[in-house]
Simulated scan of single mutants.
Amino acid sequence: MLGERRRVGGGGGYNSKGSPEWCKTGSKSLPRNYFGSSCQTLYISTKFVFGNVIFSWQPLDYSAYYVQITRDTTSDTWVRVNSTHYTVGDVLLFDSISINVRTSGSADNNIMTYNVSKVQTQIGNTMNLSWTAPFFPLAGQYLVYHTHRENRTILSVSRHGVRYGGDTTSAKYTYLTRPFLSTNIMFEIRNITLDDAGYYNGGHSADDAWWGGGVVLVVSDKPSKPKVTGDLNVEVNRYTSLTCSSQSTSAPDYYSRLVTLSYTWFVNETKIDRETTETPRLYVAKDIRYNRYSCTATEEDMESDRSDPVQINPLYTSTLTGQRKMNIQELEIENLRLENAKLQKEIKKLEVETEVLQSKKNFYDVKLQVIRNEHPEVLAQMLKDNGC
């Protein structure tokens, strides 16, 4: 059971003459066996509200109380409270929650244990839910409630039979307990969806949907499709981190927020061994630009869809300019640009030298023409000397 109204103690309650002994509690006197073998100062009850349990106690005529909480076998230190209730959060993480309340100036223990009951299934399954009711109303009806986003009645049981709203049958639920007056409450839920998750409890009034007993139905689904984020532009020979971001989509939400996901990383469609963290650290080498990284998230045995892949752009410092970091494509373009500028300078230099040589050639052509016109005998001798 998720919890119950309970008086702590056990046995006894009668004196040697067979008459009941009495305990004083606030302004009332009650038989000792109302509490157990010893007189208990407080009456403690529990209330389950969206993943938390609220312990409340009576009577209310003490100025302060001292509270100690035990989660499974781990006990907290004592704390002083000035109210008559105490809330413990995220109880689905534990099997049991115990509270010990002492009144101001007393060392008497008033202990209440809240047993956490939850069942887990997946979408599309059929599941039986059950708990033991403290009593079944001989007159009237026992109502079964489902609390998820809202509190609603799913069925009602009387000594004459079961009603599902205004009908005697339901495509969703089937009450299984016979006879109908039994305190062993059991019913079937079919074709389970995320909307069926939440807290189920029963009683003769709407307030009983919260108090004690009942069970939490957890409906599991695969995590959301992850998204990989991180610094994708990193200088070579340095480290960077990628993050696989996903969330549990199981219900109810006060369960899903407690879920711890595990992760699987892939590089170029190959699983990276022994890497299950959300944010792995990667060394950026020159050839890392060819890698495509992706991931999946897993909740228990349910794995998400694969994330879209990302690539890391290694950054380099130009060896020609040494001024800024760039990726390999930018570096290649920058180097080509600088080489082209250098080549253009060489071409310009050759063009100038060619013009100078052309000027010299024109000068000698003119001079040779003058010699041919004015001194043909000299030109003939020059040609003869050169073997022409």
Results as ranks from 00 to 15, higher is better:
1 M>E: 09
14 Y>I: 08
23 C>R: 03
35 F>P: 01
46 T>V: 01
50 F>R: 14
55 F>G: 00
56 S>G: 05
57 W>V: 01
59 P>Y: 10
61 D>C: 06
62 Y>Q: 09
64 A>K: 08
74 T>E: 07
75 S>G: 01
77 T>V: 10
82 N>M: 12
84 T>A: 10
85 H>F: 15
90 D>C: 11
102 R>Q: 00
104 S>M: 12
105 G>D: 06
111 I>Q: 00
112 M>W: 10
116 V>T: 03
120 Q>C: 08
123 I>R: 13
124 G>H: 14
135 F>W: 09
142 Y>I: 12
144 V>K: 10
147 T>G: 12
148 H>A: 11
151 N>W: 09
153 T>S: 15
157 V>M: 14
158 S>G: 10
159 R>A: 15
163 R>L: 13
167 D>K: 14
168 T>V: 12
170 S>Y: 03
174 T>G: 04
178 R>D: 11
179 P>K: 03
185 I>S: 04
188 E>W: 06
204 H>T: 06
204 H>N: 13
206 A>Y: 05
207 D>H: 11
222 K>E: 07
223 P>I: 01
224 S>P: 08
226 P>Q: 08
228 V>I: 15
231 D>N: 15
234 V>T: 10
234 V>Y: 00
236 V>T: 15
238 R>W: 04
242 L>H: 02
242 L>P: 01
244 C>T: 06
245 S>V: 10
246 S>E: 02
248 S>R: 02
250 S>H: 08
250 S>C: 03
252 P>A: 07
254 Y>V: 04
261 L>I: 05
264 T>Y: 07
264 T>M: 07
266 F>S: 05
271 K>A: 14
273 D>T: 07
274 R>M: 09
275 E>Q: 09
276 T>W: 08
279 T>L: 00
282 L>K: 00
285 A>W: 08
286 K>H: 07
288 I>M: 14
293 Y>W: 15
294 S>G: 04
294 S>L: 11
298 T>F: 00
299 E>L: 06
301 D>I: 10
302 M>L: 10
308 D>C: 15
308 D>I: 14
308 D>A: 15
309 P>H: 04
313 N>E: 06
321 T>I: 05
323 Q>R: 07
330 E>N: 11
332 E>P: 01
334 E>P: 04
336 L>A: 05
341 A>M: 02
346 E>W: 05
351 E>Q: 00
352 V>L: 05
356 V>K: 00
357 L>E: 15
363 F>E: 13
370 V>I: 14
372 R>V: 02
374 E>T: 12
375 H>I: 08
376 P>L: 03
377 E>F: 05
378 V>G: 07
380 A>N: 12
381 Q>H: 13
381 Q>V: 10
383 L>Q: 01
384 K>Q: 14
385 D>Y: 03
